[in-house]
Design a protein around this nucleic acid. Sequence first.
DNA 1: TATGAATGAGTTTTCATTCAT
DNA 2: GATGAATGAAAACTCATTCAT
Lengths: 207, 207, 207, 207
Amino acid sequence: MTGTKERLVDAALTTIKEHGYGGTTARAIAGRAGVNQALIYYHFGDIKNLLLAALDETSAKRMLSYESLLEKTETIDDLVQLARDAYREDLAAGHVTVLSELIAGSLQHKQLGPEVLKRLRPWIDFATRSIEKVTRGSALEQLVPARDVATAIVGFYLGLDLLHQLDPAESPAERLFDHAARLTPALGMLMAFGTVENETERPPAST
Amino acid sequence: MTGTKERLVDAALTTIKEHGYGGTTARAIAGRAGVNQALIYYHFGDIKNLLLAALDETSAKRMLSYESLLEKTETIDDLVQLARDAYREDLAAGHVTVLSELIAGSLQHKQLGPEVLKRLRPWIDFATRSIEKVTRGSALEQLVPARDVATAIVGFYLGLDLLHQLDPAESPAERLFDHAARLTPALGMLMAFGTVENETERPPAST
Amino acid sequence: MTGTKERLVDAALTTIKEHGYGGTTARAIAGRAGVNQALIYYHFGDIKNLLLAALDETSAKRMLSYESLLEKTETIDDLVQLARDAYREDLAAGHVTVLSELIAGSLQHKQLGPEVLKRLRPWIDFATRSIEKVTRGSALEQLVPARDVATAIVGFYLGLDLLHQLDPAESPAERLFDHAARLTPALGMLMAFGTVENETERPPAST
Amino acid sequence: MTGTKERLVDAALTTIKEHGYGGTTARAIAGRAGVNQALIYYHFGDIKNLLLAALDETSAKRMLSYESLLEKTETIDDLVQLARDAYREDLAAGHVTVLSELIAGSLQHKQLGPEVLKRLRPWIDFATRSIEKVTRGSALEQLVPARDVATAIVGFYLGLDLLHQLDPAESPAERLFDHAARLTPALGMLMAFGTVENETERPPAST
DNA sequence: TATGAATGAGTTTTCATTCAT
DNA sequence: GATGAATGAAAACTCATTCAT
């Protein structure tokens, strides 16, 4: 059959999104993929490997698109915009759910933890770079430890996703992004302020 | 045996903290409680009920202590302090983990979702009240939709807990709280600015 | 159900005798015992444990009866007689087969080896004691290293059993025992020769 | 690939020696041979056939060398020497293990039995001829039924091998051969004796 | 209340084998 | 000759749950 590995990866993703870590059994995955259960083991060795391969795949795809978005991002406003779009798509597509379920599942299967962490780090790195890019040269640069904030934001996404799973109807995220968008001009001013004292040593990010 | 129900509740909590939702089987719980598996069904009907009872129990206990802490909380500084203490204890004690594992497990067992949500709401309410209390009468009151921020904070806790499960070593939360503490005076000033009418009745948070 | 453990032990013995180590699956055992497969794990933890418990049981039973036979054994003739009877019953009842299959299976499941060895030793000890008893004070006592010969005899039983499995029709053992019986008087004479000091206390094996 | 059949035969032998009959799966064999699993079926039809082919191969090789050794064997002393050397090499090389595992496995797969027996007979024949050669014309010739003793010896080898698998450290065989070597002169004398008296009347085995 | 035993459906994984290329 | 992919059956074992006592 053509693309069995791809079918399995897709099926694994869909299944974990719909039925969670515990519901993602060999039978469920293979059933959805329309292939024999044994093929999971033929192609991936075991279920955990398939799950990690699935995580790799989504991660890689999304990272690519976000990297290209980041290139066009210059200001905090842009970044909030990017964050909002990312949130919308990731939540809707269940990307974050895959991650949060795998993390939650790591408590049961301890070997999973390090592997998932390895795949989470690029996202924290990406968020760090994003923050650094838009705060570079401003007062915020000193004020805000980029990596910590980045980690916090990634955690925030994970948590919002958990809440969204519980209660898909009431998502505060959209409203919060709106608020954030309204507040960023203030932040921008703050940044400008901060940049005054800084001006002699370092020019502002955008000349 | 005396206190079998309590033993089971305790065992269920410990087990879910250590082995996650999927690892919390009847055998594991009963084994840890040192009682017969069948007693789970005698006392709680099924495992999900035991888990929910366990969630009820921790929730109630913690809510009580937090309520009394909130009474002494007046300013944003106080609240950040409260949040930091809450975070420390909840994380260390695994309270949040119980919640995040149950939410993650809700994807697998759909009936769990509504029940967990029911038990999560009091916390969002509590956070909402906390925010309202410290922003009442200030500019922030209008600026910040208390309930959305409260939900966001609860989500944030959940997410940080997931990250902490993955990588207990690197927890950005403590550092973030420190930063927040350093920033709140500024926020306090912002609030003072905004609160024209309020000024007579209540002094700004930081003099 | 009454005697489930006993039924399982019996079924395990019968199954290994009939279908060998590899054919002794949970399904086969439980099927023969007429009980649910899961009871194997409830009562014994895993299949290997059941197999070892089964070995324990037969071993204990047989050891008892052989011990009492040994008490009545005084001469080499008696011992050859005992060996022949033991061989007949053990082979017919498949006792040795259980052992040889478990040893052969130990190559596949390495953890089995030490456990089986632990249960084999009492038999080598028994054989050693038997030999020592009938050779004590004779020339053979010095000539023959009792433990080595005992080990050899146990090995011999195992090997004969393997051959018997292959070709139940042609068993040389019976004929060999007949020969041995005919030769022992000569051995007895040899012993009498060697035993100068012994002569007064104990009459030679064959009068 | 060159010599695929040979590689498979070698791999099958090594695998059965190391992991026993039950551990000798298509995957294990092919993996060790470094070839595709399907080639087992292409070249040998099924696993059992490969195993039998492997047995054929070792058997043939060893038989050749033993035949040439037998030619130089004239006395019982020589024969004990030959037996000891054979034992050492066969045990070390695992030749006997292949046989004992296949016999033990025959209980599970009944079709295997006759085939293995067919390949075992030449060895019993060889042992018979060896015994006959060194006892010819002596008293022992009548005393000892060569074929039965030969069968017994083959069984003995099998049994010793089983024991050796269980406890490679303590092998009584070497010590026993030493003893046998020390005893054979006596046997030789017995033979000489017997041959003299034999010539005239020959006394019955038991008086 | 409590227990030991039981059950049937489920889990992950491996097996020997086949087949199209 | 050789390979990668596929398959259905079976392996060992665990699950939540029930029941008689």
